[in-house]
């Protein structure tokens, strides 16, 4: 079995649910109370990914990054060496789309080959949705990223986001 270690960053504005997505994916847990992250929290998850006729044991180091302007200057140091990123926005707050363009630019400027995937989170808040399908598709197209509608609360599509990104990481890996 081939083993691979890859760094993946979670990018997005504050309170979009980055920490919750990681917590759901790694521990299958959810905490309703919002606790803002400062700096970075690194978590590890090992997943088995198929590639050709073999299976790759992929260790994903998830970098859950702080989201405030104060951390703009240090975000670049966090992004170093990232093989991929999950760009997260909140379906109830259209303004959280705006920052994704900057985050993806920073990611690709520091890591030209990095893969990006878009998670439009909090779809469990059905009555508060403030983005249309067309808007979401347009953003995904702009970012050149596959898109998933996710809910860290219910777990909907959370595994799929990370597995899809994992597949992108192992497909292009030279290991």
């Amino acid at each position: 079995m081939i083993t691979l270690n890859r760094k993946v960053c979670l990018l997005g504005d504050f309170a979009v649910g980055k920490t919750s997505l990681v917590r759901r994916f790694v521990y299958d847990l959810f905490e309703d109370k919002y606790l803002s992250t400062i700096g970075v929290k690194v978590s590890r998850k090992v997943v088995a990914m198929p590639r050709d006729d073999t299976t790759i044991e992929l260790t994903i180091m998830l970098w859950d990054l702080a989201d405030s302007q104060e951390f703009d200057s240090v975000r670049v140091s966090y992004l170093r060496g990232a093989s991929g990123a999950v760009a997260v926005c909140d379906i109830t707050r259209p303004s959280t789309i705006d920052g994704l363009y900057k985050y993806s630019r920073d990611l690709r400027a520091n890591n030209p080959g990095a893969h990006l995937i878009l998670a439009v989170n909090k779809i469990d808040l059905a009555d508060q949705r403030a983005m249309t399908a067309a808007q979401i598709e347009a953003v995904a197209l702009d970012l050149k990223a596959p898109v998933y509608l996710t809910s860290a609360k219910t777990g909907k599509n959370v595994d799929d986001v990370f597995r899809h990104l994992g597949q992108m990481l192992v497909t292009n890996a030279a290991a």
């Binding site: 400062i38 700096g39 970075v40 929290k41 690194v42 702080a66 951390f71 240090v74 140091s77």
Partner: peptide, 10 residues
């Protein structure tokens, strides 16, 4: 030099 600030450890 290279610095990584505010690393959270649980």
């Amino acid at each position: 030099r290279f610095q990584v600030s505010w690393i959270n450890r649980e």
